[in-house]
Each structure stands twice: as C-alpha cells, then as structure tokens.
Amino acid sequence: MLKPDREDILEIDSGFENLMHIGLVANNIKVGVIGAGKASLIKTKTFLKAGCEVEVLSPRFDIGFRRLRCECLKLKKGKFHKSFLNDKHIIVIGVSNKKLEKRIIWHCKRLNKLYLVCSDYKLGNLRLGAQERTDEFVFSLSINRGNPKLSKYLTPKVLNFLQTFAMFCKWATDLREKLKHHPQKDQILEFVCSDDFYYFFKKGYANKVIKLFYEDV
C-alpha cells in the first residue's frame, strides 16, 4: 500500500476558532440586518462603507438609522420571518429577545448562511475584523480570542508599516499586469517578490535589474 507524501498531508490549524479572513467582492454581497440597536447600526455602517447592499429589518428604527443616507440601504419595518433570509449572503443578528435570536440562528444554519450574532460573536460563524484600505492595500485585523478595541488600536500601526511598501506594491502590480501573457510570468514575479529584489527597488535599480535578467520585459 502506497504511503502518502508528507507534503500532501494537511495539518489543520489548531488556533482559537480557526479564524480565516476572506476577501468579499462587496458590491455583489447582500446583507440582512435583523434588529436596529447600536451594535446593528455599527455593523450596518461597516457593510455600507464597503459597498454592500444592506436591508435592515426591525419593528422600529432610532434616529441613527434614519440619518443614514445611502442608495444601498433599505429599511424594512416589521417582525422577523424566515423569508427575509432567502436572498441574503450574510445575516447580522442584533435582537435582544434570546428566544428569537436562537430561532434566527437555527434558520441561518439550516440555510447555510454566514451570520454574525451581535450579543455574542462566539454564537456566529462570522466575525468582522478592523479594516483599512488604501489605493494599494485592503486588510483586516482580528484578535484570535476577541478584542475589537485592540484590533482598532493596532490597525493604523499595521497600515503605517504597509504604507512603506506602497510604491513597491504599485510598481510590482503594474508589472504583473504587463506580464499577463508573458511565458515566464510566474518566474519573474517570484523573482520580484523577494527581499533581495526589494533592496534594489529601494536603491532605484528595479527596472535595470529586471532587464538584466529578463531582456524582453
């Protein structure tokens, strides 16, 4: 019997909750928010800022929601019904009634929805990290054991570090687009995305070094 190659054996990350960040194409994502409390308002603003389409369902809305002005926002007055979940990719559960909360979670699980529970993030299968974006970067930061204020504090520090690579990021991404149909694309990008090449980039020799090794670029 053949033994599997060690390199083919996947080792599962045993970290807390196995957090995994994904990048959503926000303008293709529909979000349903159930409840119109403070936590729901914060999550609604986050998704709207990213470009998601958001529909909020609640028997009543406070001034914070009524002040929001966005073409991607719809406020729906009423009580929860499972049909509200049907056309949504992500559900934010922000209700104070624990019995209703459990019922919504049950429906979300049954329909395989991504859902976030405002009362306790451990009850959901989705967490929102602190996020930041620039012309060159988009990133999200979460603390494994849950600490939103710390994530928010650290995010600008991470951004400051990333910004030192902004010019290199733009140059390398422009190069990648230029190499779209080049037969050695992967090899060249592997060469460029390295500490050694970044050293020459900082010295102003990036284009010369590329031409030295790859004349047809």
Score class of each variant (00 low, 15 high):
V192T: 05
K185M: 12
H181W: 10
K122N: 15
G146I: 11
N125Q: 03
S140L: 00
F168V: 02
N144M: 06
A166P: 02
F161D: 14
Y153L: 15
P183N: 06
I143E: 05
K152E: 15
K185R: 15
R145W: 10
F137Y: 07
A130K: 01
A172M: 04
Y121M: 08
K109D: 13
G129P: 07
A130C: 08
E190S: 13
D174I: 00
Q184A: 13
C169W: 01
L175E: 03
K180Y: 13
M167V: 14
K113Y: 09
S151C: 07
N147K: 07
P183T: 07
L159T: 08
L114Q: 05
L179G: 09
T173E: 13
M167I: 14
D186S: 08
K109I: 06
H182N: 05
F139E: 13
Y115I: 11
S119Q: 02
N144T: 05
V138S: 09
C118L: 04
F168H: 01
E177K: 13
L150A: 13
L179K: 02
H181V: 08
N160L: 04
L159P: 07
N112L: 02
N160E: 14
G129Q: 00
P156Y: 10
G146Q: 06
Y115G: 03
C193S: 12
L116N: 14
K152C: 12
S142T: 08
C169Y: 04
C193E: 15
Q187F: 11
R127W: 04
P148K: 00
T134Y: 08
R176P: 02
R110C: 08
E136F: 01
G124M: 07
T155W: 01
G124W: 06
V192L: 04
L150V: 09
G129F: 00
V117P: 09
R176H: 06
H182S: 03
K122H: 15
R133Q: 14
V138T: 14
Q163A: 02
L126H: 00
L150Q: 07
Q131G: 05
S151W: 06
H181A: 09
L126T: 10
Q187S: 12
L123N: 03
H181S: 11
F137K: 03
H181T: 13
H181C: 04
F161P: 02
P183I: 12
Y115S: 08
A130D: 10
I188C: 03
F191Q: 02
F137E: 03
V117F: 06
C193P: 01
C108W: 10
L175A: 00
M167K: 12
Q131F: 07
G146W: 06
I105Q: 09
V117D: 11
E177Q: 14
K109F: 04
Q184V: 01
F161T: 15
I105Y: 10
C169P: 00
A172L: 01
T173V: 05
T155E: 12
P183V: 12
I105C: 11
A172V: 05
R145M: 09
I188T: 10
